[in-house]
Amino acid sequence: MKWFKKVGWRHAVGVVAVVFSLGPILFVISAAVNPLGTLSSSQIVPSGISLDNFTKLLRDTDFGQWFLNSVIIAGTASAVAVFVSALAAYVFSRRRFRGRRTGLLSLLLIQMFPQFLAVVAIFLMFATITDYWPVIGFNTWWGLVLLYLGGALGVGTWLMKGFFDTVPRELDESATVDGAGHAQVFFRILLPLVAPVLAVTGLLAFISTINEFIFANIFLTDSSAKTLSVGLWGLVAAEQRNTNFGMFCAGTLLTAIPTVLVFQLLQRYIVEGLTSGAVKG
């Protein structure tokens, strides 16, 4: 009884939480290996094991292409976003200039406007762009990447500024004395020091981009141009909801694999980075 009061209740809470967390995931796994592949026949314990859903997904849909599109779009967008916000965070942290406070506050404010309500304006804008420069228009990687980059500064400028602030100024001052320019201080001294937070911001940006649905759904209408979220959503839309459920769950699991891997790899950094303020979007 004393053990329960000291330690046991902690395990009890932990086990209940794990059950709550894993229940739906177990259901997804079991539905993915369910040989019938329908929602109505899916249970939390699989009735049989087969890889039919996976083979069907890879054979009958453009899943491989969707995966590639998602990884390239989310990868490019998050990498550029991290770089661009690191640049901004550097001057916000290290330089005093007119409009600094205003700039920081406007960044916060602009994020508060629900950007996707501008979807009509964005649609009209990209319709024109598609006419002029089809390479960066609808159904292309670049079009969507550019659109996502519109929010690049919001991704991590504040978070990174906080990290830059913790790096002692003496470091860059001494480098300046040794003759380093502002670009050298940034690239050679500060960037390597804040590498963990770059990784975390990049990962967060990657996750939120790969989950983005509204704009991708409007931008990508060709099946070969779709991202995972748009493609998978199409699998369970309307009447196919019941029949394609197994395939959908198989796709969900495949989508999760890279994220889970990177997550476990970066877990230490993530806890540290998240505490400094960021929301999964």
């Binding site: 794990v18 967390s21 894993l22 790969i210 979220s229 998978l232 369970v236 969900t252 989508t255 999964k280």
Partner: peptide, 25 residues
């Protein structure tokens, strides 16, 4: 515990929302 508890966070949110929708069917 930590590895297991974090799993929902790493799953694709859009897909899990749809899964939940069907779990409530």
């Amino acid at each position: 515990y930590r590895v297991l508890l974090v799993l929902p966070y790493a799953m694709p949110a859009f897909a899990m929302l749809l899964v939940w929708r069907d779990m409530f069917n």
